[in-house]
Nucleic acid binder design. Structure first.
Length: 845
RNA sequence: GCGAAAGUGGCGGAACGGCAGACGCGCUGGAUUUAGGAUCCAGUGGGAUCAUUCCUGUAGGGGUUCGAAUCCCCUCUUUCGCACCA
């Protein structure tokens, strides 16, 4: 005993006096080993092994890996390593999302060029990645600003163009004055720029669109998304926003111009007393121009259009409007109703024109009262108490139709059906489906992105660049600056070109692509990243796609993930892949918070992973992050918790260091004629139970926190087990096994230490190449179990009994139990419930 | 306003109808150490009690059940998504 202690002391002192395991040495050693032996190299050669593709959302090339990245990638790495041990050929690639505004702004800020700063940033990040030791196949690295990559963005653009999925349109768009670029609707949520938070302005610009709406119904189909969090599926569904309604065609009085309106309540059509147009409505403009109050109306409309969209669409904002002087004819009764222009009607939804039914819509009700417009009740409530003079708010519920000609008396639900049918027959309107999803605007008026492969020819018009001329290279000799608009405009060599059709003078498109275009298909490029002939070979895609497990933040639900799904369906339609969805399982990991808030520079609560890797090592950081909570929930950063993880790894290392030379003389298998103490049987149970628990926690629900907890518990059990000189052979065998399972058990979470203790225990090669552990059911059978006795559902006593006792015997023991006596004495036992091997409940009256 | 998820010790979190609080952090006591740190052992929801034990407890209220943190209904709170959406 003393001797051992002395040896340990020597050992620990050797590493700087502090009793800490030498993680710096260990981690570097195994990172080198993995690289040298190409442990994570996933070849495209056919093999017997089933494949498994684990993908983390690749980081933006910002130059730093933050804690959120480490958390995300630790989850993926744990899965990858576990799957490798389970016998899969695992591919876990990594790359960099590196085009786009942040990179351009970064360069401007550092008075440099994005080409330079981006590659510097990538270098920095790669170094950081390597210090954490994630098991990536770096030979598959993909960098989106690389011409070998963005060439295929252009190729996809052309393919979409060929398939009628690309068009050019002049439209009012979200414009960020700070970023000097157009934003897609989903990038301008809440009226602010998703990148910089600046108020978004409206600007009319000609730009390129991808017809994602052609795939709306398919994107709505979630039948292949069983492995996705319901939350994400719902968010996408809401985003696409399918709603059933009716289009009713009003006509402009004194002309044959049609004014279609969209409503979900056609049953209220007879109560429509006015129309309101969005200020952006094309007809509004026409009416204004011919109006005698043109100036006044013009000013009103301009004011609204130029007002902050966020303010305008806020619920508190007062509804204002102006009468245009014109009337519309309601097709159902030929009534002329006044046409207004109002701030509360938006062009983006429906037809940009609303039929107003003030009695049955709160907004219309308020508007009508404010401007003294007529109100007509057409739906009567259940107790028939609606009266015009007494109404203080609109009645939006269901009821019986009144004042509705031949439909009077019908229930509103039935009336909707009948009215739609009738209108369809008469050509007054029709049932329609409306979607909130808009086409994907991909033009960006900035430099650092994929050039859109189009040219403008004076003779031939807009002509796509031929495939053979790809890539249209982004010129490098460009000065970027904040004041300038798109720098490409001033690069004559780039702009001036010849028409691919007539060879005449032509100008190149200077818009570049939204970076979501880059990231919409990178997962597929990873399958065949060096292919120069095609984006990826069909064979490679067949081998790896769809992604088996994708991991990333939930903030990408309606942007990246939706675009990637769209892209995959398009790639399927042009024959590149044969699946409908790009990934079968999605895990949206939580954020790493500190002091209850998201880590951010502005709050000054950012914790740098590097500090902790230097001080405690990568394994500690991983264990902390994985242990803190289940992967889909947020992690609360806790310095003390990191220490706790470190302590755990130290305890493992110490245990193995102390015991490795002794246990190699213990039996390495079980024999029937060995003797086993009760304590040994319990430890053997612990070993096998832990294997079962860790396997199931990873396999079935990816709860690494409980898996790690189980290993901690097992370590506690091993630590409290003592081998003495006269211990039985069986005890020694049990003890040896209990220690020898540790390297594999911790490998998904603390891979460096796992390799080290695997080696310390005299094993060869990487622990990754060994199979995963198997537990034996026979060792999970306990000789004695704790059997609970309840009286009326309350715990009153416990028994230590054999699990095989009969129901009768159990009941007998329970009734005889001393503590139970006082609860059942003199009372009638009405019912006895026995849950085998668990409990007995005595119901007394 | 609509939709979704969630509310458990001082903290992170376990427990997917059957012993509430696994595991970790923190805290308390002890051992060890020149000291600090580290390490090891024990204890730790709250309230009674010398103790054995008892009562109480999973946001609040009700219900289903032999039995509820868990299932159902209502209320409150928090988070997230959508939102003058016609």
């Amino acid at each position: 005993m003393e001797v051992n202690f002395f040896i340990n002391k020597l050992c620990f002192n050797h590493f700087g006096g502090k009793m800490e395991y030498p993680f710096q040495i260990i981690e570097k050693k195994w990172q080198k080993y993995w690289t040298d032996n190409k442990l994570f190299h996933a070849s495209n050669e056919k093999s017997e092994k089933p494949t498994y593709y684990v993908l983390s959302m690749f980081p933006y090339a910002s130059g730093v890996l933050h804690m959120g990245h480490i958390s995300n990638y630790s989850i993926a790495d744990a899965i990858a390593r576990y799957k490798m041990m389970k016998g899969f050929k695992v591919m876990q690639p990594m790359g960099y999302d590196s085009f786009g505004l942040p990179a351009e702004n970064f360069a401007i800020k550092h008075n440099s060029h994005p080409e330079i700063t981006t590659h510097e940033n990538i270098k920095k990040m790669t170094k950081q990645f390597k210090s954490v030791g994630f098991g990536y196949d770096w030979s598959r690295k993909v960098i989106t600003c690389d011409k070998e990559y963005y060439k295929w963005n252009q190729w996809f653009f052309l393919k979409m163009y060929e398939n009628g999925l690309i068009y050019r349109k002049k439209s009012t768009l979200n414009w960020c004055p700070e970023c000097k670029t157009v934003l897609a609707n989903e990038q301008a949520e809440g009226g602010v720029c998703w990148r910089c938070g600046t108020e978004v302005k409206q600007k009319e610009i000609e730009q390129w669109f991808v017809k994602i709406t052609d795939y709306t119904e398919e994107l709505l189909d979630d039948s292949e998304l069983d492995g996705w969090p319901q939350r994400v599926v719902t968010m996408e569904k809401n985003w696409i926003g399918k709603s059933y309604g009716t289009k009713i065609i009003f006509t402009l009085k004194g002309s044959d111009k049609e004014i279609p309106v969209f409503t979900t309540r056609p049953d209220t059509i007879f109560g429509s007393t006015y129309l309101v147009l969005a200020p952006e409505h094309p007809l509004a403009r026409e009416i204004i121009e011919s109006s005698d109050k043109a100036e006044e109306l013009e000013e009103f409309v301009e004011d609204i259009i130029n007002s902050d969209i966020k303010m305008r669409t806020a619920e508190e904002t007062e509804k204002i409007g102006k009468f245009t002087g014109r009337y519309a004819i309601n097709p159902v009764n030929n009534e002329a109703v006044p046409i207004w222009i109002g701030n509360y009607v938006v062009m983006e939804y429906g037809t940009g024109a609303v039929m107003c039914v003030p009695a049955h819509d709160q907004r219309d009700f308020e508007f009508a009262h404010k401007y003294n417009l007529p109100i007509r009740i057409v739906i009567q409530n259940e107790d028939k108490s609606l009266e015009l003079d007494k109404m203080e708010e609109a009645y939006e519920g269901e009821g019986v139709l009144v004042n509705s000609e031949q439909f009077t008396g019908l229930e509103s639900e039935q009336a909707r059906k009948d009215i739609i049918q009738w209108m369809e027959q008469k050509g007054m309107g029709e049932a329609t489906v409306h979607y909130r999803l808009r086409d994907w605007g991909i033009s960006r008026q900035r430099y650092w992105g994929t050039p859109i492969p189009m040219v403008y020819c004076e003779n031939c018009g807009v002509i796509p660049v031929p495939e053979a001329d790809l890539p249209v290279k982004l010129p490098k000799d460009v000065e970027v600056s904040k004041t300038q608009q798109n720098p490409l405009l001033s690069v004559d060599d780039f702009v001036n070109t010849t028409c691919p059709q007539c060879n005449g003078k032509a100008k190149r498109e200077t818009d570049t692509m939204d970076t979501f275009f880059d990231s919409a298909w990178y997962y597929a490029r990873f399958c065949d990243p060096k292919n120069r002939e095609e984006p990826f070979s069909k064979k490679a895609a067949e081998q790896w796609l769809p992604v088996d497990q994708y991991i990333g933040g939930i903030e990408h639900a309606c942007l990246h993930l939706l675009y990637a799904r769209f892209f995959h369906k398009f790639m399927r339609d042009i024959g590149l892949v044969d699946s409908d969805e790009f990934c079968t399982n999605l895990l949206t990991q939580g954020m790493v918070n500190k002091d209850g808030a998201k880590m951010s520079k502005s709050k000054g609560n950012v914790v740098d992973p590097e500090t902790y890797i230097d001080r405690y090592g990568s394994d500690t950081l991983r264990v902390f992050l994985l242990f803190a909570s289940p992967p889909n929930k947020d992690v609360e950063w806790d310095d003390k918790g990191v220490k706790g993880a470190f302590r755990f790894l130290n305890r493992i290392w110490k245990l193995v260091s102390r015991q490795k030379d002794k246990i190699k003389f213990y039996p390495d298998h079980y024999e029937d004629d060995f003797a086993y103490s009760t304590a040994a049987k319990k430890l053997r149970y612990s070993s096998h139970f832990t294997i079962k628990k860790v396997t199931e926690d990873i396999e079935e629900r990816m709860h690494f926190n409980t898996a790690i907890a189980a290993v901690m518990e097992h370590l506690n059990n091993v630590s409290s087990f003592k081998i003495k000189k006269d211990s039985a052979q069986g005890d020694m065998a049990v003890y040896r096994e209990a220690i020898e399972i540790l390297p594999k058990l911790i490998n998904p979470f603390a891979p460096h230490l796992a390799e080290e203790i695997w080696e310390m225990l005299g094993r060869e090669n990487s622990v990754l190449e060994q199979g995963w552990l198997r537990y034996k059911e026979e060792f999970l059978v306990k000789e004695e179990i704790t059997f609970v006795i309840q009286v009326n559902g309350k715990l009153r006593s416990k028994l230590e009994i054999s699990p095989d006792l009969s129901r009768e015997k159990v009941k007998e023991l329970a009734l005889k139990d001393e503590k139970i006596q006082k609860y059942i004495k003199g009372k009638e036992i009405k019912k006895v419930i026995i849950v085998p091997k668990k409990l007995i409940n005595l119901v007394v009256g």
